[in-house]
């Protein structure tokens, strides 16, 4: 019956998927006519025509260079904060750290303080990452309108949750024998973590942090739409004023920034790997 069950599952899943996609097309008011009609061509043509010539005077370019630096700074400090939040959360969420090497793969942890810390830390990690970073920013901006800080905090909290989860997976993946050896000679939890777990997980952790920085740059641009300074803010202002020549230049800055960061992060990951 195994084969029959599988086939039934596939048919039901397939039918549900088709129905869901169909419903989504209705929900999204999908209408090819609106995209190919004269109005769309007119609007799109106007947008593209207004893009040329892109604004490129020195004053504007130096404004955008400053905005780019703002965006990068927020992304960098946000990632740094996320790593600072993520490492302790990850350590407390890793069985081999909080329970010790012999529980590396155990499913049923022993009750007690360690278990309470483990559960609490995993709960916080999950809560931090279940809210998108821009939504965090929206809440933080209203609570404390302090310039770049809400954006940095938002990236720190949301990515702290993501990093906490991934770092903890990487920590639980390390070879158990060095950890057990340190425990055997009487090293405490902190030392076992610092000299047994961390060095082994260091490469993958650094590589994931670099990837998160890439994401943080994009996120930091978006923060501009909810009030933070940077390229996103400039983009929103220009778009709101229908200055598409400026939008074009800002988009070009964005693309170059994204490509450069991707390239740098790839290069770093290749060096570590």
């Amino acid at each position: 019956m195994q084969g029959g069950d599988r086939t039934t599952f596939r048919w039901v899943a397939g039918a549900l998927a088709v129905a869901a996609v169909g419903a989504a097309f209705v929900g999204a008011e999908f209408d090819v006519g609106r995209l190919t009609g004269a109005k769309a061509a007119h609007g799109g043509g106007m947008f593209l025509k207004e893009c040329w010539p892109p604004r490129h005077d020195a004053e504007f370019l130096s404004l955008l260079a400053g905005a780019t630096l703002d965006t990068l700074s927020v992304a960098f400090l946000g990632t740094l904060l996320a790593v600072a939040i993520g490492i302790p959360l990850a350590a407390m969420s890793s069985r081999n750290v909080i329970y010790g090497a012999r529980f590396a793969g155990a499913d049923t942890p022993p009750a007690g303080t360690a278990r309470a810390v483990f559960v609490a830390s995993r709960t916080f990690t999950a809560a931090f990452r279940s809210v998108p970073e821009v939504v965090w920013a929206l809440l933080f901006v209203k609570a404390a309108p302090l310039g770049a800080l809400p954006a940095i905090l938002a990236i720190g909290v949301a990515y702290g949750g993501l990093i906490g989860k991934v770092f903890s997976e990487q920590m639980e993946d390390v070879a158990p024998s060095p950890v057990a050896a340190l425990e055997a000679v009487g090293a405490g939890r902190v030392r076992t973590f610092a000299w047994g777990v961390l060095p082994q997980a260091f490469g993958p952790m650094a590589s994931y942090a670099a990837y998160r920085f890439e994401c943080a740059v994009r996120a930091s641009v978006l923060m501009g739409f909810v009030g933070a300074k940077g390229l996103g803010f400039e983009l929103q202002v220009s778009y709101g004023d229908f200055l598409f020549g400026e939008v074009f230049t800002e988009t070009a800055f964005l693309i170059v920034l994204v490509i450069l960061i991707e390239w740098a992060s790839d290069a770093m990951r290749r060096r570590i790997a």
Binding site: L72, S73, V74, L77, L80, A143, A144, L146, G147, L149
Partner: peptide
Amino acid sequence: TALAVWRVQPDVASLLTLKTLTAFGDTF
């Protein structure tokens, strides 16, 4: 880090005041 801090001047002092922390609590 130094460059980024110099650029955006994060106002950590104002963040860590009782007033701001209460505002966070209030908001949530």
